[in-house]
Each structure stands twice: as structure tokens, then as C-alpha cells.
């Protein structure tokens, strides 16, 4: 492993003009331990940004601070400015509930609720009071499942438990559940790491389709996946953002030697 001090600013183009979310000088601490060091990054609207890096580099931590999921950890502290459409999401006056409705999250392990497939998808719409009539709810469930590419597989058994589906189907169900509340940004924390290659391919296809309407940030361990699905790629190393560039550039001609070392498999 190359041990060299990571100093200096992020190379490449971390900032964009059409930013959906913009983060400036973000530091994240777990108790006394700092996990993220001064990250500046913009997430462009209706684009997929992939976050890659060796284990423990802080990419998941960074992702989870984008919809304040880190709030659940007592000792976790986030500093800096994180803005969604120009609004500070760590504003003490801001309610975290609507924030999470706007910035949805898909997790590493498929985690459908132990309820029926229908209830899984309908849950978000129900708690946010998005619908008043049953037919509207049916419509939301159907379109969400269609967008997640699951409708044809489950339309005849909507009242069966979501936990009875296969791993890949469960993960697509979780995506359907997330998009049912029509979020603007979808955060995905290694969504395919528990899936087989075929299920992974389906999810990747889905991400490509979703990126037309949603802004997506995906953390992944698979560089192939990052190369396939993302428009921009951010490389994290030991809690610092090393390089951000167009995905093609990162995987063909990275600006930073650490990035090059990682994608060529010299460590990671």
C-alpha cells in the first residue's frame, strides 16, 4: 500500500454549475476520531455520481451525512455546509423528516419491511400523507414498481410478504419503496454488494434509467460498476476526497497518482 501524505486540494473538477447538492468543507467526527477531512463536492442534477475508494475511506460516512442518517449515531458530528438546492440541510430549524423524503436512501443489504409487497411500497406515501384515496395509492405503487422494473414479476402477488422475494427482487423493491415518495436525490450505499451478477446487472440498468429523472449518488466497491453506471466519479482516500472527474477520465487517465494506483489494483 502506498503510504504517502495526502495533502493539497482535491484534483479534478469537484464543483459543477448545475449542482443539486453542494458540500463545502465537510468534516465528520466519530467522537474524537475524524472520519472525513474537509471535503468540497457538488452533486450535479440528474446525474449519477459514484464514490469509490478503499474500505474505511469514509465514502459511506459521507453518503450518510447527505440525508442526515448519521444523526442516529450519538457520537457522530458533522461540520461544514451541506446544501440541497441552496438550503442548508444541517440547519437546526430544518425538519429531518421532509429532508429524508427528498433525499431517499437504498442500503447495502436489501431491507424490505416484514409486510406485504404493496405495503412496502405504499408505506412512504402513507406516512407522508401523499394520497387521500386508495386508487391514488394503487397508482403510486404500480408506477413505483414499474420504474423499479419489478411490476411484471410481482403484480399478481402484491399481498405476499416482501421478505419472500429473492435478494435482487428485494433490492428493487427497496428502490421502488424509495422512489414511491418521489425523492429528488437517491443515495445508494453499495446496493449490489449482496447480490449475484444477474441481479446486479438489473440494478445497474435501473440506475441508468432512473438517472434521467433523479439525482443519484452511489457508493460502490466495484470499479466496473462505477465505470458502467456513473457520469462522474469521486475517489476517496483515508477520509479525504482525492479526485473528482468525469468517470471516463477517472478510469482512463486519472489526474492523481493515488487514483491511478487504486483503479489499477495496486491497493484497495
Amino acid at each position: 500500500m502506498i503510504e504517502q501524505p495526502i495533502s493539497g486540494p482535491t484534483v479534478g473538477h469537484p464543483l459543477v454549475d448545475n449542482a443539486k447538492m453542494s458540500m463545502r468543507d465537510v468534516n465528520v467526527f466519530y467522537g474524537d476520531k475524524q472520519a472525513i477531512f474537509g471535503v468540497d463536492l457538488d452533486i450535479a442534477e440528474n446525474q449519477v455520481i459514484a464514490m469509490i475508494g478503499p474500505s474505511g475511506c469514509g465514502k459511506s460516512t459521507f453518503l450518510r451525512s447527505l440525508n442526515r442518517m448519521n444523526d442516529t449515531i450519538d457520537i457522530c458530528r458533522v461540520e461544514g455546509t451541506l446544501k440541497l438546492d441552496g438550503q442548508d440541510i444541517y440547519d437546526p430549524k430544518l425538519d429531518v423528516v421532509p429532508l429524508r423524503a427528498r433525499v431517499g436512501m437504498v442500503f447495502q443489504k436489501p431491507n424490505p419491511f416484514p409486510k406485504s409487497i404493496y405495503d412496502n411500497v405504499a408505506y412512504g406515501a402513507r406516512i407522508h400523507g401523499l394520497v387521500s384515496r386508495r386508487t391514488e395509492l394503487d397508482e403510486i405503487v404500480e408506477t413505483s414498481l414499474q420504474k423499479a422494473g419489478l411490476w411484471n414479476e410481482v403484480k399478481d402477488r402484491l399481498d405476499e410478504p416482501g421478505t419472500g422475494l429473492s435478494g435482487g427482487q428485494q433490492q428493487r423493491l427497496c428502490i421502488a419503496r424509495t422512489i414511491a415518495v418521489s425523492p429528488e436525490v437517491i443515495l445508494m450505499d453499495e446496493p449490489c454488494s449482496a447480490l449475484d451478477p444477474i441481479a446486479t446487472a438489473k440494478i445497474e440498468e435501473l440506475i441508468a434509467e432512473l438517472s434521467e429523472n433523479y439525482t443519484i449518488a452511489i457508493v460502490t466497491h466495484s470499479m466496473q460498476q462505477a465505470a458502467r453506471v456513473s457520469h462522474r466519479t469521486a475517489y476517496f482516500h483515508l477520509g479525504k476526497l482525492v479526485e473528482v472527474n468525469e468517470t471516463e477520465k477517472v478510469f482512463t487517465n486519472p489526474d492523481h497518482e493515488l487514483t491511478e494506483a487504486y483503479i489499477t489494483g495496486r491497493f484497495g
Partner: peptide, 26 residues
């Protein structure tokens, strides 16, 4: 399982909703 709670929180359930809808039934 905490994953269930995270899932509910991830789509914007409040703490009470997480507890009443998911933690308590389980």
C-alpha cells in the same frame, strides 16, 4: 434488526413512526 429502522428512516419516517410501525410490531 436495525436495518428495518434504517429503511423506515431512509424514506422519512419520524422516530415515533419508526417505533410504532416497525419496532413495536416486531
Amino acid at each position: 434488526p436495525p436495518s428495518i429502522e434504517e429503511a423506515a428512516m431512509g424514506i422519512g419516517a419520524s422516530k415515533m413512526q419508526v417505533i410504532l410501525h416497525h419496532v413495536l410490531p416486531l
